[in-house]
């Protein structure tokens, strides 16, 4: 090492220069790519919602979305109504799928009234009510789109996560876990109960659809608990809407 690179002045200048160069590089990359990234996220939301109501390209074992090219048309075709529920008020809004559930949860904590998006889809004469939910896994956020019928029986679900452990918690987005939810009842004896991701479940083949339980993933206890918790807390908020639906 030469003496020149050892002086304090040089070190400070180098540090400043490095921060400026790297900082502007990252800022440039982030802002230049933002439109593309946002567009990808928007299409992904449409794909997720469609997936939950059974519009997907699943083969025997793996979960596959409809292609990004087809997503906007299919979304238009199958999703007939997008609602925003706020207290007793239900309004239609064709941008409801862009509502950020994370922000709404924060708003609710701050005392504001939470806006609950609900998507109504029609396929083969059947009506699907699809709700987005969000919670915490072991490392980071987990979220899901749950499609239900008017009795709050799950018709399909898509789970995703930000950073759960590969091979363990990350498996919530695998077919064997998501498919277990299909047909599972959210209510028990008329009251909302949710669905527990249960360990030591006596029903590993998941034949009993009214036990409000699905089989947990080994080694992913905390992620599973997170799934149970977000179903309980977030889907519960939709109960009044479904009650109204029945009464009218």
């Amino acid at each position: 090492m030469s003496n020149r690179t050892e002086s304090n002045g040089y070190t400070i200048l180098f540090a400043i220069g490095m921060v400026v160069v790297v900082g502007s590089l990252l800022a440039f990359a982030a802002s230049a790519l933002k439109p593309n990234i946002d567009e990808n996220k928007r299409l992904e939301k449409q794909q997720n919602i469609l997936y939950a109501m059974g519009v997907n390209e699943n083969d025997e074992s793996s979960a596959n979305f409809v292609s990004t090219e087809d997503a906007p048309q299919l979304f238009e075709k199958y999703i007939t109504k997008q609602l925003v529920i706020q207290g007793d008020k239900v309004t239609e809004d064709d941008q409801a799928y862009l509502i950020d559930v994370k922000k709404e949860q924060a708003n609710a904590k701050a005392g504001l009234e939470r806006r609950l998006p609900l998507f109504i889809g029609e396929k083969d004469g059947k009506t699907y009510y699809i709700a987005p939910i969000r919670g915490k896994g072991l490392w980071d956020a987990i979220w899901a789109y749950v499609a239900m019928d008017e009795n709050m029986v799950v018709q399909g679900a898509y789970f995703d996560h930000k950073g759960e452990t590969p091979g363990l918690g990350a498996n919530i987005k695998q077919r064997f876990f998501m498919d277990d939810f299909i047909g599972e009842h959210l209510k028990s004896n008329g009251a909302f109960k949710g669905i527990d991701v249960a360990k030591g479940n006596a029903d590993p083949k998941n034949e009993d659809k009214t036990d409000n339980e699905v089989d947990a993933i080994a080694g992913a206890t905390i992620t599973g608990n997170g799934v149970s918790a977000m179903i309980k807390s977030d889907l519960k908020l939709y109960v009044p809407y479904f009650e109204n639906l029945k009464n009218n």
Partner: peptide
């Protein structure tokens, strides 16, 4: 390698 000040080299690597 020839312009990195050795006092802050770990930070430079990390960055």
């Amino acid at each position: 390698r020839n312009i990195i000040p050795s006092k802050i080299r770990i930070i430079v690597q990390l960055v």
